[in-house]
Write a protein that binds this DNA or RNA. Structure first.
Lengths: 217, 217
DNA sequence: CGATAGTAGACAGCACCACTATCCATAATC
DNA sequence: GATTATGGATAGTGGTGCTGTCTACTATCG
């Protein structure tokens, strides 16, 4: 197909497709003449993936480009891919002041040990989580570590579900995409389900009549 | 304190504080003369909250303003607050094509029923989740509904933990802030813990030696 | 008291991001 | 042969989140 059809089938404007081509997020089409190219279903699929990561996952164009270049690299192993995807979709905030930050990192790592998890104390998510803890405490929320602790065993179940999903892939390409889609769209699933669960739990605990009922709405 | 001290104590540049004042995210200080004002600890706290929502929660200035104006409204009830906060932090993507979207919404609501949750079929998160489902399917991920289904009971536990946290507040102001902080920072906690759980589960299932070990890093 | 530094408020400017528009020469299509 | 589409290049646009500059004043310190 030519670029016009690709645009129609994907819902992405032609100039935007050209922009993605320039940015290397979409491989060039097969040349049929000096100024003509042909695109196929792989381009359509890639374009949909790009839009999914941007629209649903909320990623920046730069983050998408980073992920895709790792996916496309022939030597891309799971290690690189996981790290790239995980970091792309988790904008790590600036760590807090050194002392509060490092002691919070220790507390987080203690929690990880307590949970029996097999992760390095220097995992970037440990740092990120410690920053969240420091931030919450700077707002006077001193119960926040207990809040995090309570989340631990629950998120462990999520991790198991995630690995089950990824392992269900048939080919290597499927696996790579399952990691990307599972991680990025998975975050959206988690957050939206959390909203629903909160609304439901609120309605259950406070079944107040009248206008309060719409809390579950 | 004057604006300079507020800046030093919060780590926010003076022109930025002025910008937040202009935008109504920070209440004006108490005037001591036509061009002097004094700020107190409530300003410092509010400023930290703003930065937390922006830096850690990743919210836009507009979203923060919306949340804070609801928090500040004297007649703000839990209903308004929950909705505003939940929507601010969940950028709802454009729904997909009408037919695929509405059938997906039905599937999601069926799942909600299956889980025994008390939420309206028109809850905005139902629509958002349906959009995620449609997107995943457009990428050929037809196992995705099962993936979502698996998340359901797990996220229910999160909802319970969230309500427990909010209910632990002592005053009305504490409660309002617990909702905001619990929702926004809670999302960050969830996502970062998910990264750690994924890494740990990966390390457990594939304890490959050598360079593979750093998957858990 | 005067020198220096800080402040409120108004307004303009800036860097970045994600496109979008325009143009041209060529190619495809009717 | 007329119309429409295309590839490629370059420039422009609109939104966001600050940042810089200016002026008239105020605070502080030796």
């Amino acid at each position: 197909m030519r670029i016009g059809e690709l645009s129609k089938r994907s819902g992405v404007a032609v100039p935007t497709i050209k922009y993605y081509l320039r940015e290397g997020m979409l491989p060039p089409g097969e040349r049929t003449s000096p100024n003509q190219a042909r695109y196929d279903d792989t381009h359509l699929h890639r374009l949909r993936l790009v839009r999914a990561l941007i629209d649903v996952g909320g990623l920046s164009v730069a983050a998408v480009r980073g992920i895709l270049s790792t996916v496309d690299a022939p030597e891309s192993d799971m290690e690189d891919l996981l790290k790239t995807v995980q970091k792309a979709v988790l904008p790590v905030p600036e760590p807090a002041a050194v002392d509060a930050q490092s002691s919070a990192e220790k507390e987080i790592h203690d929690l990880v040990i307590e949970l029996g998890w097999d992760v390095s104390p220097k995992h970037f998510a440990v740092e990120a989580l410690a920053t969240v803890l420091v931030t919450a405490r700077s707002l006077g929320h001193d119960r926040f570590l207990d809040f995090i602790r309570r989340y631990g065993p629950i998120m462990q179940q999520i991790g198991v579900a995630d690995l089950d999903y990824v392992v269900g892939a048939r080919t290597v390409d499927d696996l790579l995409e399952a990691v990307v889609v599972g991680t990025v769209l998975g975050d959206s699933v988690m957050i939206t389900l959390r909203r629903l669960a909160q609304a439901s739990e609120t309605a259950t605990r406070f079944p107040g009549g009248g206008d309060r009922q719409s809390l579950s709405d």
